[in-house]
Design a protein around this nucleic acid. Sequence first.
DNA 1: TTTATGGCTGTCA
DNA 2: ATGACAGCCATAA
Length: 111
Amino acid sequence: MPPPSTYDMIYAIVKHIPRGRVATYGQIANLANLGGHARQVGYALNALSANTRMPWHRVINAKGEISIRKDPQCEHRQRRLLEQEGVVFDERSRITLARFGWKPRRGPRRS
DNA sequence: TTTATGGCTGTCA
DNA sequence: ATGACAGCCATAA
């Protein structure tokens, strides 16, 4: 069987993002051995099926904001999904990565 | 096969 | 802190 494709790796990482937490494209790209090329991550997510169960909405850009695609409405929808998971946006529509940023690894247990 | 695009990132001012 | 520029690579036509 052939090795996993780049998209598969990305999907695997995104699937592992816990609920109520968000990860940046660079974060996923790094975990996916992409070497930091976050772009492919975004494309992979965009290539997902509409009925996929992939938590693509938990993936955001390094600025902590929701990346804009072709449809500005997607931004609104993604934000809605995140809020539904408990993620909070500030006035700038930005997420506090320090708080909601997904920390892979056993992670330092927060108090 | 080549060409064009694309949900980004990091650095500089 | 924000704004602007260039670079990298895989997928789809």
